[in-house]
């Protein structure tokens, strides 16, 4: 088994890789020949309209779906293999917790399942409890938690084993502004520590402010990838990420004309 703990020198090493991945559900193509790389230390924002193929792609990363063709690798291992799961942390949009466990018991369960040494596990649990400010309700049964409390505990459980790949689907659902700020900062910290972070998100302002690179998927195809600057240059677009997103995904009619680049506006005969 390959070493899943990244050293600083391994920054830039591809951790999530899609090679010509296609996923079909019957006659419907959910993901169409997707090629993608997310490197260690990179925070990648995965954008796309509803039904574009984001969640399908994420499920293939986690080994919950198999590609119809192509291959997905995590840390050099086929997605779904035990090695890939050992280095992966996944936070779905609807977090799963055991109703009849307390938060603390859930964290203990996760560290035990991950084979962590007891002392190290206790230290990491304490660290996560402090980071996500969950001490106040940690000894209550999870069935009484609000959506935000659940989300914070799920983040703590995802990071407690120091993953090298973090995949999150709509991470800010149900979080209050303070928690959202903590999570945003956590994403940046994780990436700076060498973790490959892939987040699927609809809040374009957060993608704009946090992501190192952005990928826009539409109707199963990756239609644009790069830094925000690269995307703007490539599309000759001077507006916000939101306008760029609408431009690329067929919502041009919703864009304020003044946001378009002068060249594009001139081509369309706009003043």
């Amino acid at each position: 088994m390959k070493d899943t703990q990244l050293q600083p020198r391994q920054f830039g090493q591809p951790m999530i890789r899609f090679f010509d991945v296609t996923k079909q559900f019957g006659a419907k193509t959910a993901v169409n020949q997707l090629n993608l790389e997310v490197k260690a230390g990179e925070l990648f924002a995965f954008l796309g309209p509803n039904g574009a193929g984001k969640t399908t792609s994420i499920k293939m990363i986690c080994g919950l779906l198999r590609p119809t063709s192509g291959q997905v690798e995590i840390g050099g291992h086929p997605a779904g293999s035990q090695e890939s799961r050992s280095c992966l942390a996944y936070v779905p949009d609807q977090p799963f917790l055991y109703d009849k466990l307390t938060g603390r018991e859930f964290l203990h369960f996760v560290t035990q399942m991950r084979g962590m040494d007891k002392t190290h596990a206790e230290k990491k649990i304490a660290e996560m409890v402090g980071l996500f400010e969950i001490e106040g309700f940690l000894d209550e049964l999870c069935e009484g938690y609000s959506q935000g409390m659940k989300q914070r505990l799920v983040f703590a459980s995802a990071l407690v084993h120091e993953p090298t790949v973090l995949v999150v689907d709509e991470p800010f659902v149900g979080l209050d502004p303070r928690s959202a700020r903590i999570v945003k900062q956590m994403f940046v910290d994780q990436a700076r520590r060498g973790v490959a972070v892939l987040m699927s998100i609809h809040l374009l302002s957060i993608a704009e402010s946090l992501a190192d690179r952005i990928g826009i998927i539409h109707q199963g195809k990756m239609i644009a990838t790069g830094t925000l600057q690269e995307l703007r240059e490539k599309e000759a677009f001077g507006g916000s990420l939101e306008d760029l997103f609408l431009e690329l995904t067929g919502g041009e009619d919703l864009i304020n004309p003044s946001d378009k680049s002068p060249d594009a506006a001139e081509e369309e005969g706009l003043p």
Partner: peptide, 23 residues
């Protein structure tokens, strides 16, 4: 692999805790 034995023990811990907490 270490996680194989620890995962079996952890799942047993889970069932045990869920049962006790439910009761």
């Amino acid at each position: 692999m270490k996680t194989d034995t620890s995962s079996a023990a952890s799942l047993a811990y889970l069932r045990n805790r869920v049962f006790k907490n439910t009761i």
